[in-house]
Computed example of a mutant assay.
Amino acid sequence: MDNFYTDNMNIREIDGFTLQLVSKNVWAIDEFGIDIMYLIVGTKKALLFDTGIGIGNIKNVIKELTDLPLVIVNSHHHYDHSGGNYCFEKIYAHASAIPVIQQQNTPEFRKDFFLSQEARNEYNHRASLHSHITCINHSELIELKEEKIFDLGDRTLEVLFTPGHTKDCICLLDSKNELLFSGDTIVSTPTLLFDSFSDTAQNYLNSITKLLSYSNKYNLIFPGHYLRPIGKNYLKDMAICLKEILQDPDIGKPDSCNMALGPVYYHQYRLASILYTKDRCI
């Protein structure tokens, strides 16, 4: 465990992106408040987990940190995690994510999504959404298999399929360094389970149970948004939160979210919380 940095002020900026060294050779890259990408550097290769919405110049950021060959992986299809794919030639994604990413790769979708982001409270306006609104490129999308191993040299990353927030979510496990990179499978704010936007609560519970079965292989979880890292005990709270919703879908308090088609409900158990529509409670 001597590879962990305890100084949370270990922060720098490159081209407006805020970077924090969160473990040895692991950078959290905050894209103007909207999302967090992770650059994981080995001795032979580096891996970028997610490409963000695609504002600013993420390639310049990477070049400042490493000149190693770069592997790109999308955690799921949502555009705040795959909108920067245009910067790269090849991207790995789950098979279910690939057709959705391809469908989203249009000027119309990108424009509508970018305009929707301007109202986000998290967006710090230090880069212009409008200056990158027309960036489209036909990158090669490569199907990810369950338990695929990315060998970066002195560290490996294992792909874990974790449907829930979406039906194509994955996590990356660095068991040697006891780290889990969770995308939106685990975040420190409510997980969103909406309509056909998401998988069912039962399948999400199955994914949480799966991650708990690996819990002797990681101690810290690095999410795609908000506070990081998250302690692995959070998963136990999430499992109970899901079980309570499945037992009684009416347990949640009415809430709101403009991303959902139907009525939204909020339920919290200790640290974990979920925003859900009742059609997901099967």
Rank of each mutant, 00 (worst) to 15 (best):
I29M: 06
E89V: 00
G153K: 06
L211I: 14
F222H: 15
I251C: 15
E143V: 06
S215W: 12
I170N: 03
L65K: 00
L172V: 08
P107F: 00
S273P: 00
H125T: 07
F222N: 09
S116K: 12
D7K: 07
Y86A: 03
L275N: 03
F197M: 08
Y204F: 14
D154R: 04
Q104S: 03
S215Q: 14
S23R: 10
Y218R: 11
T18M: 14
E146W: 11
A95Q: 13
L129V: 07
L115C: 10
I245G: 04
P249I: 11
N85C: 07
N105E: 00
R126F: 13
I221L: 11
R228I: 15
S128F: 07
T106H: 04
N177P: 02
N3D: 10
G252P: 08
K253H: 14
C87K: 08
C257A: 07
A119C: 07
L47W: 02
N105Y: 00
V187R: 13
S82T: 15
L152G: 07
G42T: 11
S131A: 12
H132Q: 01
K45W: 04
G164Y: 00
D15H: 11
K167S: 05
P190E: 05
E178M: 11
T189S: 12
D168A: 09
L68F: 06
C281P: 05
I91Y: 01
D248T: 07
L246E: 02
E147K: 15
K90S: 01
D248Y: 03
F197I: 08
D279N: 14
T134Q: 01
I221N: 09
T18N: 12
Q20G: 06
D112P: 02
H81Q: 14
I58V: 10
A260Y: 13
H165C: 02
N105R: 02
L39A: 03
P263K: 15
E89R: 07
V100F: 01
G42N: 10
I170E: 05
S196K: 12
Y204N: 12
S213F: 07
